[in-house]
Nucleic acid binder design. Structure first.
Lengths: 197, 197
DNA sequence: ATGTGGCTTGACCATCTGGTCAAACTACAA
DNA sequence: TTGTAGTTTGACCAGATGGTCAAGCCACAT
């Protein structure tokens, strides 16, 4: 089922290696091996490790950014929206390692700012959405910033700190991954409880 | 105010550099510079980068492990216990970067298992505690494993993903760090809400 | 057959990095 | 003063790593 297009094969291989080893731990030779080509060919397609990394990073952002649109879509009540957001966000984190993103943002926070400054202006969309709900008396009168942090925390941390949580719960990784399905529903309930009056 | 004891100076320098750059990104030369000694001297005290890292790792675990004792101490009602746990855990994460721990556990999950197998047997203490509360009819009848994950998530993620959350909240890092005080109280409230009947 | 342009690669390079070592320095005992 | 044990370091090494390049390969047009 492998693509013959070398560029796509390289990008897939790079994602695998970068997510597993992080930018500093990743080796161009390993990416080349994974893609089944020579290191020289790899440099023929992507001039440097940095450029290749940028491509992976950007693809990741393109997966996440559409999710913030959830809060602009007015066709649903807020509870299903929360459930959908949690499900979608955890889905992205299941497919793509959040760790390498957090690592890289720690290494160079400017990388994120460059993208945010271009795309997002004004207050965060969830904050705006929550304040609208609050004005309408639909949710509890509390600081939406704390809700936002909690929202991202309960979705992101479980995959980020999987090895630690496997330890705490005495689960094998496969068992843990399966349990996260159940957890996602519980987490959404938890958030809804935090927001309800 | 610097210690003259070289070993302590080295450990402090190593913590600074490892937390900032991660194991793969950290350079022995940088640690030596930070400690104000030569690289050769650094190797005189700690034979290898691995050994030095192990010392930092172990010191970190020694800070965290005592916290699980919270759930064995029966002098309080459960609500204050939760508040105390959140405050203490976030305090540790404020002083010591959680990121390098998560990174390293991802690189080599066996490192954690070695410590857990020795120290912890049987079910997690929080799980046991929650089940006792549930039997006594004091808390909601829900899966304690999800509560455990949520508990650790809302404490750990805010510092782990600080750059991302600074972006979402349009805050400067200093402002964000300050806000985490307020957040800690809110997070404890949310947890209590999700445990209450 | 011959040329052409894109693709591939083994060999190579400069640099970096963890780690070693012999020589030098220091404090203190004999 | 001399010896000794612990400490410090500049110089050095071997291996790894990102990146380059000239030469070769291959499909296809002429």
């Amino acid at each position: 089922m492998e693509t013959t297009d070398p560029e796509k094969r390289i990008l897939k291989a790079a994602r695998t290696v970068f997510e597993r080893d992080g930018f500093n731990g990743a080796r161009m030779q390993h990416i080349a091996d994974e893609a089944g080509i020579s290191k020289a060919s790899l440099h023929y397609y992507f001039r440097s490790k940095e450029k290749l990394f940028d491509r992976i990073f950007d693809a990741y952002m393109d997966k996440i950014l559409p999710l913030i649109g959830t809060w602009d879509d007015d066709t649903d009540e807020w509870r299903p929206k929360v459930r959908k957001f949690v499900r979608d966000l955890m889905g992205v984190f299941r497919d793509t390692s959040l760790l390498f993103m957090v690592q890289e943002l720690h290494r160079d926070p400017k990388r994120l700012q460059a993208r945010l400054d271009a795309k997002r202006r004004g207050p965060n969309r969830f904050i705006k959405y929550y304040e609208r709900l609050r004005k309408d008396g639909l949710v509890r009168d509390t600081d939406p910033r704390s809700i936002l942090i909690t929202l991202q925390s309960v979705c992101g941390y479980p995959t980020l700190a999987a090895p630690m949580l496997c330890g705490s719960l005495r689960m094998k990784p496969a068992e843990y991954t399966k349990f996260l399905m159940t957890y996602a529903d519980d987490a959404a309930d938890h958030l809804i409880r935090s927001m309800e009056k």
